[in-house]
Design a protein around this nucleic acid. Structure first.
Length: 402
DNA sequence: AGGTATTCACATGAAACTATTCTCTGAGTTAGG
DNA sequence: TAACTCAGAGAATAGTTTCATGTGAATACCTGT
């Protein structure tokens, strides 16, 4: 009986007409043919990089701007084009794109170099070797290649803040030693203030050229969305006002186009699942809520026990009183640990954990001084109150399950 | 009243420690010639 | 004697702890009026 209904469900699913032509167009991994509203930047970067086609070393570039302003997209687009021409004309050129945020791939000095070496077919063990050794392997493989190397380091700020600026220094120094090859570094950063606090020597060598990506305004996001929507959805499936609303949402988030596109995609998915023929404004609201829920549930479930315990403490205190301070949370947390048989961490560590939750965007904190009564952080939840009870429930389950 | 010094309750920073995972090396062992 | 095994040294890394220093403003304490 059940089997039958299930198969009929699939039948129906297949028979139903999809709203999408190509869902991939709305995924973050999609690279469009041409990039709108970034002509100036494309031209600028292209002219800086053009010398590689004459076997000359282009300047290092530092690209910065907020998330979702098309930095990665633009650079990938340009790199693709250069690669095409280079292979056409038989020009010795190798480009490597590496995202420094990816855990276990390129988020430390050792791993970054190991990762880069892997592009030359050298596999390097995840640990055990001295870092110098890894540098040597990298150096040798680059030297043997006898070509120009364009190195794109995305989210380079993450790498530098985590491991210090030696890497950049070492990389630029390797370049000086190379005889038959040369390396150009293209650093991409989401943090617009990042350049201010790194070593001046490194600074001047990395940012021989600067390119700034300003946030898209609402109108530009609308255009981008329209373009994507026309490729992703069938005709007349998007109700009027939908694009505008998505754009407005993203403009609120500092012109983050990625978010707008994601919102549109999820709206489409919801509409399709509800068997609606069109995507309406209500679907966007639903999508927005769904995205927020997913964000927090993901975090909650994947965090280690200690983090969960801290978050649970925050939520518990927050639901009982208006203000939550570090001290109270730590007390609650310690009792909680005792109850569930967890070894409590020091307050120092818990303080860091709280900070990390803030970085994840789950809570907001504000350091305040209560004068004679000390200094602390005022902690508030930054997720909508509708998801809190459920989050608390999930945390409870996770914690008790040991 | 007005000004200055204290003081609280943490924040923030740096260094050191712990545990885990992994490679490399070289001594000892084994099996075949 | 060559091949193999296996323990120990050395690395990288994540997650902490320990120690040290910093900090903003409500109060306590003066001072002179």
């Amino acid at each position: 009986m059940k089997k039958k209904s299930l198969s009929s469900f699939f039948e129906e699913y297949l028979a139903r007409e999809s709203l999408f032509i190509d869902r991939n167009v709305l995924l973050p991994s999609y690279t469009p043919e041409n990039i709108s509203h970034r002509d100036k930047e494309v031209k600028q970067i292209a002219s800086i990089l053009a010398p590689v086609l004459k076997q000359e070393k282009p300047s290092n570039i530092f690209i910065y701007g907020n998330t979702g302003t098309g930095k990665t997209l633009t650079i990938k687009h340009i790199i693709n084009n250069i690669n095409l021409i280079a292979s056409d004309r038989n020009i010795q050129l190798k480009t490597i794109y590496s995202n420094c945020k990816l855990k276990k791939v390129a988020d430390t000095e050792y791993r970054l170099i190991a990762h880069l070496s892997s592009f030359f077919g050298r596999s390097i063990p995840p640990t055990g070797l001295p870092t110098d050794e890894v540098y040597k392997i990298f150096y040798d493989s680059v030297e043997k290649e006898k070509s120009t190397l364009l190195l794109v380091l995305d989210e380079i700020d993450q790498l530098i803040t985590k491991t210090g600026d030696d890497i950049l220094y070492n990389l630029t120094r390797i370049n000086e030693d190379l005889k038959h090859s040369q390396i150009s570094i293209i650093g991409i950063s989401n943090d617009t203030t990042f350049m201010e606090n790194i070593d001046t020597r490194v600074k001047s060598s990395l940012s021989e050229e600067d390119v700034f990506f300003s946030p898209y305004n609402a109108l530009e996001i609308q255009n981008i969305l329209k373009e994507r929507a026309s490729k992703a959805f069938k005709e007349n499936t998007v109700e009027p006002g939908v694009i505008e609303k998505c754009a407005a949402y993203a403009a609120r988030e500092h012109g983050d186009a990625r978010k707008a596109i994601e919102l549109l995609r999820v709206s489409g998915e919801i509409a399709e699942r509800n068997k609606n023929k069109t995507i309406s404004l209500d679907h966007i609201d639903e999508a927005e809520e769904k995205l927020e829920k997913e964000k927090i549930f993901d975090v909650v479930k994947t965090q280690p026990k200690q983090f969960q315990a801290v978050l649970f403490s925050i939520i518990s205190i927050k639901t009982n009183s208006l203000a939550a301070y570090t001290g109270e949370i730590y007390d609650f947390y310690k009792k909680l640990c005792f109850k569930i048989g967890l070894r409590p961490l020091t307050q120092r560590r818990v303080s860091d954990i709280i900070r990390e939750f803030e970085l994840m965007g789950i809570i907001n904190t504000k350091t305040i001084s209560k004068g004679r009564y000390g200094r602390t952080r005022d902690i508030s939840l930054s997720v909508s109150s509708s998801v809190i009870p459920l989050t608390k429930k999930i945390l409870e389950d996770e914690l008790i399950l040991n």
